[in-house]
Design a binder for these strands. Structure first.
Length: 422
RNA sequence: GGAGAAAUACCCAAGUCCGGCUGAAGGGAUCGGUCUUGAAAACCGACAGGGCGUGUGAGCGCCGCGGGGGUUCGAAUCCCUCUUUCUCCGCCA
C-alpha cells in the first residue's frame, strides 16, 4: 500500500478501472504530517528516556537529582499536543486506506458487469421438447422444498428442505466434502458468529457493514458470517506462517447469512436469492509467486464439480468493476437455469493477492528470514442454493420427475429419480 | 449467570507483594560448531520478534511482557477497563 506513496498515479489509474475515483494528494500530505510528528515525538521521548535512566543511577549513587528534574520539567508538556495530533492523523490515514478497494489485475477489462467475458462453456445448452417447469414448481410438487411454512417460522427469503429435498441438499454437500478431502484440503468447521476484526480483514468492512446480520446485545459486537471465507481467511490473522506450511489449503461448510437488502428481483423467486444458503468454500494461503497457479487449481476444482454433476454452465471473467472490493480478479461459474433462460453464479473464484493479508497481517517467513505477506484466494466449491434449482430444472423429465446426477446416487441411498409422492 | 485464578519471547517458566543495574533469569526446542566412520549423548556458541521513523549504508532512535487507557521523571511490576483461557457453582443442548 506504500505503492501509493511511490506511485500514486499508477494506483489512481488502476482503481479507476473499477470505477473508483481517488485523489491521493490529501493522503500524501497526511503521511508527511505523520512523519514529522513522529520524528518530533521520538526525539523528546529519547531524551526523556535517557534522563529517567539517569535518575535511577543518581538515586543508587545517592546523588542529588534536582538538576535532572529541572531538565525533565522543561520537556514535559512538549509532547502531549503532538501525540494527540499524531493519533488523529493516523486515524485518518487508516480510515482512508480501509476504504480503498483492491487493485484489479492488469489484464482485466475496465467497466462493470456488461464487460464480463464468457471464457468457457461446458456442454450444449440442454434442450427440452416439452414446456420446462421452473424449480419452484418442481421442488414443490416433488415435495423437496416448503416455502410457505418457512415464511411462517422465519420470514421471507427462506425455505425448508423437506425429506428428499433435504437429502439431496445434504448429498451435494457431502459430495463436495469428499472431493476436497481427496485433494488433500483441510476440513474446518467454523464458528458462524464473527467479530468485527474478521470482517475488516476479509474486506467486508467497513464498506459492507449493512449487508450482514448483526447480533443485538453482544459486546463486542458479532455478526453472522456471509460466507465461510470471512472466517477461513481469519484463521491465520496476525500470524507468521512457516515457509514449509505453504500453500495452506482449507475448505469448510457453513450456511451463509446475507441481508440482501433491496436486491430482490422478481425473476429470483425460489432459492435463487435468500437470507441463508449453504456453501462449501475453499481457501488457500500461498506464496505470492504461487497464487496464479493456486487460482487455476481452484478454478479447475470448482469446474470439475460442475462437470461431475453433469450441468451446463459457463465461466465468466469479471470486469474490474464487477470484481468485489477485496479481490484482484474473479472468475464466476454460472449455471444455466432453463426456466428463466439465464446463467446464475454458483461459484466465484478469486485472488485477493496480498490485500486481505495486509489487512490481517497474514505473513510468512522466507528463506532469508524476511517476512512478507502471503496471498489469499478463495473459491466456492460450491454454493448449493442455485445448484439444486439448476439440477431440478436441467434434469427434469416430461412427467415432472427429475433424474438424479449419477455422482449423487450413492449419497441418496441409490435413488436415481425423484418422482412425485402422492 | 455467580465466585475465583491466570495471560511474559517458538514452547515451558521466573520476575509482579517492595516501580529504576530486567527490553526481561532458567529450562526445552531450533540453528551453528567440537567430538564421532555416521548418528546419539556430552560440551561450546547463537537465539525477540515485529512495527514504525531516520539514513545510500553499517547503523541509530521510538514502540513492544494479552488489548486499550491512566498514575509516575521512570511501569512487566501500581490503578482502571476490555478480551481470552482455566477451575468451581448454577443453568442448559
Amino acid at each position: 500500500m506504500e505503492l501509493i506513496v511511490s506511485n500514486p498515479e499508477y494506483v489512481e489509474k488502476a482503481l479507476l478501472k473499477r470505477g473508483f475515483e481517488v485523489d491521493f494528494s490529501g493522503f500524501i500530505e497526511l503521511r508527511e504530517k505523520r512523519n514529522t510528528l513522529i520524528k518530533r515525538i521520538e526525539e523528546v521521548r529519547a531524551l526523556r528516556n535517557k534522563l529517567s535512566k539517569s535518575v535511577g543511577e543518581y538515586k543508587r549513587e545517592k546523588k542529588d537529582t534536582t538538576s535532572l528534574f529541572k531538565e525533565i520539567e522543561k520537556i514535559k508538556d512538549a509532547v502531549d499536543q503532538d501525540e494527540v495530533a499524531l493519533a488523529e492523523t493516523e486515524k485518518r490515514i487508516n480510515e482512508f486506506l480501509l476504504k480503498l478497494p483492491n487493485l484489479p489485475d492488469e489484464d482485466l477489462l475496465s467497466g462493470d458487469k456488461e464487460n464480463n467475458v464468457v471464457v468457457t462453456v461446458n456442454k450444449d445448452q440442454p434442450r427440452f421438447n416439452f414446456k420446462v417447469k421452473d424449480h419452484v414448481e418442481l421442488a414443490t410438487s416433488l415435495g423437496l422444498i416448503d416455502y410457505e411454512r418457512a415464511a411462517k417460522i422465519s420470514g421471507k427469503g427462506t425455505w425448508i428442505y423437506t425429506n428428499l429435498g433435504a437429502r439431496l441438499e445434504w448429498a451435494l454437500l457431502n459430495f463436495f466434502i469428499d472431493e476436497h478431502l481427496k485433494d488433500g484440503y483441510e476440513f474446518l468447521l467454523l464458528p458462524h458468529l464473527l467479530n468485527y476484526e474478521s470482517g475488516l480483514t476479509a474486506g467486508q468492512f467497513p464498506k459492507f457493514e449493512e449487508d450482514v446480520f448483526w447480533l443485538d446485545g453482544e459486546s463486542p459486537r458479532k455478526f453472522l458470517l456471509p460466507t465461510a471465507e470471512t472466517a477461513l481467511i481469519n484463521v491465520h490473522r496476525n500470524e507468521i506462517l512457516d515457509l514449509k506450511q505453504l500453500p495452506r489449503k482449507y475448505f469448510s461448510y457453513t450456511p451463509c447469512y446475507r441481508r440482501e437488502a433491496g436486491s430482490y428481483r422478481s425473476e429470483e423467486r425460489g432459492m435463487i436469492r435468500g437470507y441463508q444458503f449453504n456453501k462449501v468454500e475453499m481457501v488457500q494461503f500461498t506464496l505470492p509467486d504461487e497464487s496464479d497457479d493456486a487460482f487455476l487449481e481452484l478454478m479447475v476444482k470448482a469446474e470439475s464439480l460442475m462437470k461431475k454433476l453433469g450441468l451446463h454452465y459457463q465461466v465468466s471473467k469479471l470486469a474490474a468493476g464487477d470484481v468485489s472490493f477485496a479481490m484482484a480478479r474473479t472468475f464466476d461459474i454460472e449455471v444455466w437455469l432453463p426456466s428463466i433462460g439465464i446463467y446464475k453464479e454458483v461459484s466465484s473464484v478469486s485472488n485477493s493477492r496480498s490485500f486481505q493479508a495486509r489487512r490481517g497481517m497474514i505473513r510468512y517467513r522466507n528463506e532469508d528470514g524476511k517476512v512478507d505477506y502471503v496471498h489469499t484466494l478463495n473459491g466456492s466449491g460450491l454454493a448449493t442454493s442455485r445448484l439444486l434449482p439448476a439440477i431440478l430444472e436441467q434434469n427434469q423429465l416430461e412427467d415432472g420427475s427429475v433424474k438424479v446426477p449419477e455422482v449423487l446416487v450413492p449419497y441418496l441411498g441409490g435413488i436415481k429419480v425423484l418422482s412425485k409422492v402422492k
